[in-house]
Simulated assay, not measured.
Amino acid sequence: MTKEALFVYSDKLLKYRFSENHPFNQFRLKLTIDLLQEAGALNEDDLIEPRMATDEELHLVHDPSFVSAVKAAGNGSLSPEKAESYGIGTEDTPIFKGMHEASALLVGGTLTAVDCVLGGVSKHAAHLGGGLHHGFKGKASGFCIYNDSSVAIKYMQEKYNARVLYVDTDAHHGDGVQWSFYDDPDVCTLSIHETGRYLFPGTGNINERGHGKGYGYSFNIPLDAFTEDESWLQAYETSFREVIKFFKPDVILTQNGADAHYYDPLTHLSSTMNIYQKIPQIAHELAHQYCDGRWIAVGGGGYDIWRVVPRAWSLLWMEMAQRNEGKKQFPEQWAKRWQEEAPVPLPVSWEDPPGIYPAIPRKPEITEKNFQTVEKALYQLRQQRSNKSSAQ
Score class of each variant (00 low, 15 high):
residue 226 F to D: 06
residue 301 G to N: 04
residue 46 D to N: 12
residue 340 E to I: 08
residue 21 N to Q: 13
residue 330 F to P: 03
residue 345 P to R: 07
residue 260 A to H: 02
residue 292 D to P: 10
residue 132 L to H: 11
residue 365 E to I: 13
residue 224 D to R: 14
residue 114 V to M: 14
residue 157 Q to S: 07
residue 321 A to Q: 00
residue 39 A to C: 07
residue 170 D to F: 07
residue 124 H to G: 10
residue 209 R to Q: 14
residue 135 G to H: 07
residue 307 R to V: 06
residue 373 T to L: 09
residue 280 P to Y: 09
residue 251 V to H: 00
residue 265 P to A: 12
residue 198 Y to D: 14
residue 63 D to W: 04
residue 55 D to V: 10
residue 233 L to S: 01
residue 287 A to R: 06
residue 105 L to T: 05
residue 286 L to N: 00
residue 260 A to C: 07
residue 175 D to F: 11
residue 160 Y to C: 14
residue 224 D to K: 14
residue 243 V to Y: 01
residue 323 R to W: 04
residue 335 A to S: 15
residue 272 T to G: 00
residue 262 Y to I: 11
residue 131 G to P: 01
residue 189 T to I: 13
residue 17 R to W: 14
residue 106 L to F: 04
residue 4 E to V: 14
residue 158 E to C: 08
residue 113 A to F: 07
residue 243 V to H: 02
residue 370 N to W: 03
residue 305 I to M: 10
residue 286 L to R: 04
residue 285 E to N: 09
residue 368 E to W: 07
residue 194 E to K: 14
residue 21 N to V: 15
residue 51 R to C: 09
residue 131 G to R: 05
residue 293 G to S: 05
residue 272 T to A: 00
residue 150 S to E: 01
residue 39 A to Q: 04
residue 377 A to P: 00
residue 67 V to N: 01
residue 55 D to G: 05
residue 279 I to W: 03
residue 156 M to T: 06
residue 322 Q to T: 12
residue 58 L to T: 02
residue 49 E to H: 11
residue 104 A to W: 00
residue 266 L to K: 11
residue 83 A to M: 08
residue 131 G to N: 08
residue 208 E to S: 08
residue 140 A to G: 12
residue 364 P to E: 00
residue 93 T to C: 15
residue 357 Y to R: 07
residue 299 G to I: 05
residue 342 A to M: 07
residue 139 K to S: 13
residue 156 M to C: 11
residue 365 E to R: 07
residue 46 D to E: 03
residue 249 P to C: 11
residue 165 L to F: 10
